[in-house]
């Protein structure tokens, strides 16, 4: 079990160079090309890299459900666990709206209030924002005070921010001005692209979904009350809070927005509960999707 030779001796007798060793270990080296005595090892290496077996994919359903749920539930901000459990459901648009809600709203309000959005965006933003009680039309009004942080605008209000941004986005696309005017670099857009879709590339599809599924503003006021019971997030949208107990596994990579501190009390997340979470995910998903269905669809015109 212990090495029989010292390293120098061994290295000097090793029959091939680093590159060959790399190719052997990566499976690139065909057994027939291996140095004498290493052909079978090369075969075993290749066998170890063989195609997936059935058992290796057997956990797919539970893992995918749990991971998808967890990703949709983990925003750049931190919703309270209760809110998350009761409100977030299967519809990606609804979840993404919740995920990016506060920060996007903040950015949108800020940008729109200062008139910094290009004309089509400014118009769209003002229309959308006015529908939730934020007057920013052409920069002449003050902006809604508490909407950036803290006052728990809730899913509906936040959705409108995204809705407005997506309207602006679509307007830019239609007008061919997406890449001009600096809107792509605006805080609002960047936040939308980064937080909601993971990148600009997915924004088109995201907005298409959102605009197709989003309720109109006028119908939302009534039902929004149902969501306000649970404050969305206490205004620390972008604090990379590493408070979570699970920071250790994740510390591995330090993504730009370590936001797992919201994990505290949700089922599919404690390290030791992860497996249970995976198995139980269907329950949570069902409950959440039920809740979301009401939020998302009842406001259709």
């Amino acid at each position: 079990m212990s090495p029989k030779r010292d390293s120098d001796d061994e290295m000097s007798r090793f029959p091939f160079d680093d590159d060959t060793a790399d190719r052997l270990l990566s499976g690139e080296l065909a057994p027939g090309d291996a140095p004498p005595g290493y052909a079978r090892l090369a075969e075993v290496v290749r066998a170890a890299q063989g195609p997936a077996s059935r058992s290796e994919l057997a956990m797919e359903a539970s893992v995918v459900a749990a991971v998808g749920e967890a990703v949709r539930s983990i925003p750049g901000i931190r919703p309270s666990p209760n809110r998350r459990k009761s409100m977030l459901g299967k519809l990606a648009s609804a979840k993404i709206a919740a995920i990016a809600a506060t920060t996007v709203l903040g950015g949108a309000v800020a940008a729109a209030a200062t008139g910094s959005l290009p004309a089509p965006a400014q118009h769209a933003a003002s229309v959308a924002l006015s529908q939730v009680g934020i007057n920013v039309s052409d920069g002449s009004h003050g902006h809604g005070k508490g909407h950036t942080h803290g006052t728990a605008p809730g899913l509906v209000g936040n959705k409108h921010a995204e809705y407005g941004l997506c309207q602006a986005y679509e307007a830019h696309v239609s007008a061919g001005t997406l890449a001009t005017g600096g809107w792509l670099n605006s805080t609002a857009f960047q936040t939308l692209a980064t937080e909601a879709t993971g990148g600009q590339a997915g924004l088109g599809a995201f907005c298409t979904n959102l605009l197709a599924s989003a309720p109109t503003a006028s119908n939302d006021a009534g039902e929004s009350g149902a969501d306000h019971g649970k404050p969305a997030n206490p205004g620390k949208s972008h604090k990379p809070s590493s408070a979570g107990t699970k920071a250790d596994d994740n510390g591995t990579t330090e993504p730009s927005e370590p936001s797992e501190s919201d994990n505290g009390s949700v089922p599919a997340q404690g390290e030791t509960h992860a497996t249970a979470g995976a198995h139980n995910s269907s329950v949570g998903t069902g409950a959440a999707s039920t809740a979301t269905a009401g939020v998302t669809h009842s406001g259709r015109p």
Binding site: M59, S62, V63, A66, V67, A70, V71, I74, P75, G76, E195, G198, K246, D249, N250, T252, T253, P255, S256, E257, P258, S259, E260, N263, A268, Q269, E271, A274, T275, G277, A278
Partner: peptide, 14 residues
């Protein structure tokens, strides 16, 4: 394996 996937899920966005 489940735990690894869940740990990744929590960081996937970043």
């Amino acid at each position: 394996a489940s735990e690894v996937w869940m740990a990744m899920a929590r960081q996937l966005v970043g």
